[in-house]
Design a binder for these strands. Structure first.
Lengths: 191, 191
DNA sequence: AGAGTGAGTGATTGACCACTCATAGGGAGG
DNA sequence: CCTCCCTATGAGTGGTCAATCACTCACTCT
């Protein structure tokens, strides 16, 4: 019967959930867990706010789902970096992972969601999600690189430096202090 | 006339402002700029919410004032660390500053306010305050230590690592990943 | 064609929040 | 003792937010 426009109009709930998790990143990235409204998230996903509550039990579960989604994308990115390493040497693997990470955070959203989650850790469920995120990341980096503890720690320290620099929007600044912090940091332009 | 209790009942506005900036730290540290209510801040300071608005023009100005207050305390702490250095050697000065910083962030509040401010940088006034904070910190560390750019950068990278670890409450955890991240980090118990 | 299932929404609710205003009361100077 | 300024508050106000509910419509199976 719908001969003209063969486009289907309805999606499955699972497809919608995936869309929401993708589009909610930018919303939560800008204003964090408390500062983002469910109406805003719904608008980004192109659905009504009421339906958002059919897809997720409440705002907290929605946020945790978004954080988990980001965690998974970061892991995939690290794995991709490890696969591209030119040799099995721990330092080479770490460098290749760092390069992949630098490319990943070219879009601010992903990174900012993780920082926002880190800051909203006073909610137990969110703190648990953040701890799980870093637990899996650290274990993965350890396993994939085989590097020494100190090297892994420094890898993450540099990662946190990246995060902070991006969060405070200091990548573009042409001041001495900003140049000191961003020394040697690869900065890929957005998209 | 008030012979029994000689305690005064009124304070000057300046004294009250100082009290608010001290007590608001814990409130903003836990739930950030958006998640903290002005009523909460007023209650912590022991004044009415209405009077808070006589001391500060609005919530944003209040938050920025608290961030500036934290920035000043951190600078004092770094200066104190530099003064205690055993020699003028850049590495020794940096190490002494790091030690002082580790002691400072024994109370989570100060550090979390800075992280929360970093995450609320979508508000221009807050972003400016955060950038000013790090600008002065980096310049101070550079001037006081005389260290090379790379060393200064690594100093701050380790600082951000500290921040993240404290934020996600991983200092106490006895898991391999948490131990990797906290390697060699001095952890002073609260208060 | 008609019944049943799941996608999707408009309207609403009660709680709460940033911010305001009229006013009460302490303390110092005259 | 009176008065004037400053500290301080109670009682709102308009607006917004998370969450709910009754309801419509699209699609499928028989």
């Amino acid at each position: 019967m719908p001969s003209k426009t063969s486009q289907r109009t309805l999606s499955t709930a699972e497809e919608r959930r995936a869309t929401v998790m993708r589009t909610a990143i930018d919303a939560f990235a800008a204003r964090g867990y408390y500062g983002t409204t469910t109406t805003e998230v719904a608008k980004h996903a192109g659905i009504s706010q009421a339906y958002l509550y059919r897809l997720f039990p409440d705002k907290e579960a929605l946020f945790v789902a978004v954080v988990d989604h980001c965690a998974q994308r970061i892991r995939e990115c690290l794995a991709d970096g490890a696969a591209r390493a030119e040799s099995g040497d721990p330092q080479a693997v770490l460098a290749s992972m760092a390069e992949a990470y630098a490319r990943l955070i070219a879009d601010r959203g992903l990174l900012m969601v993780v920082m926002q989650a880190n800051c909203a850790a006073s909610e137990p469920a969110i703190r648990d999600a953040v701890q799980a995120l870093y637990a899996r990341q650290v274990e993965y980096v350890r396993a994939a690189s085989g590097a020494a503890e100190e090297q892994i720690q420094e890898f993450f320290a540099r990662g946190f430096l990246c995060n902070a620099v991006v969060a405070m929007e200091a990548e573009g600044l042409d001041t001495p202090w900003a140049r000191t912090l961003t020394l040697g940091l690869r900065h890929y332009p957005a998209e």
